[in-house]
């Protein structure tokens, strides 16, 4: 056990990788439906992110604790069943917290079930790792997903309605870019963020290669 632990990264790394190195939205480009559909305001984005994170953490915990007793053949069925359970739970919890929020998110809460990110983490991580590690992985990925949604929701709300979290930013003279809160705006904002990250990665790669050349020289 200690051997395995030494090979594996530490718990903090497990948590942080979901936020930065393997960010589900910008790096893995997973679970795109909610990313684009409900990010027209920052509040919706935050709520969707938290709901997904909750399902992710809970399903990771349960999958990890039953991983020894579930045979390989019925693995996917069992995972989907666990995920669907927690999505139903989240659906009722959101209805109990705020009906307005439930109306804004609509059927997309139920569609968390088919978010490839959750099944992906259950299959790739939680079914192979211990309870604590799976919890941290779920928490990290969930946080990363929420942050990604917030990045999109923030930009779309600022440009599309001139406000952030419902607080008006520019006063009444601001003419909002309505297209940003409409479906095409979702695609364009995500494209913008992906371009930004590609540009950063390229700049980094370029400076690294020039460093290597310098050391070689």
């Amino acid at each position: 056990m200690t051997n395995i632990d030494q090979k594996h990264p530490t718990g903090t790394d497990e948590f942080l990788k979901g936020i930065w190195k393997q960010n589900p939205v910008f790096v893995q480009v997973l679970g795109m439906c909610p990313v684009l559909a409900v990010t027209n305001t920052a509040v919706n984005a935050l709520a969707m992110g938290l709901a997904t994170a909750f399902v992710l953490v809970m399903s990771n915990l349960v999958v990890s604790s039953v991983r020894q007793i579930v045979p390989k053949q019925v693995r996917i069925v069992s995972f989907i069943m666990i995920i669907a359970t927690f999505v139903t739970v989240v659906d009722y919890l959101i209805q109990a917290i705020s009906l307005d929020l439930h109306k804004a998110l609509g059927a997309f809460i139920s569609l968390i079930v088919v978010n490839c990110l959750i099944l992906g983490r259950a299959e790739a991580f939680a079914s192979k790792n211990g309870l604590g590690r799976s919890f941290l992985d779920g928490l990290g990925m969930g946080t990363g997903f929420t942050l990604g949604l917030l990045c999109l929701g923030g930009v779309r709300e600022i440009l599309g309605s001139g406000s952030l979290f419902g607080v008006s930013l520019f006063g009444s003279s601001f003419q909002p870019w309505v297209v940003m809160v409409l479906p095409p705006g979702g695609f364009f904002t995500l494209a913008g963020w992906l371009l930004f990250f590609n540009w950063r990665a390229q700049a980094k790669a370029r400076s690294e290669t020039s460093n290597v050349k310098e050391t070689l020289a």
């Binding site: 480009v29 297209v179 409409l182 479906p183 095409p184 705006g185 979702g186 695609f187 364009f188 995500l190 494209a191 992906l194 371009l195 590609n198 540009w199 390229q202």
Partner: peptide, 22 residues
């Protein structure tokens, strides 16, 4: 350009298509 390739380009295309469908 190199940095537009892949997912970003597909997203821009999808956005344009989505505008048409509006």
């Amino acid at each position: 350009p190199e940095m537009v390739k892949g997912a970003a380009l597909a997203m821009i295309l999808a956005g344009l298509l989505s505008i048409c469908f509006m």
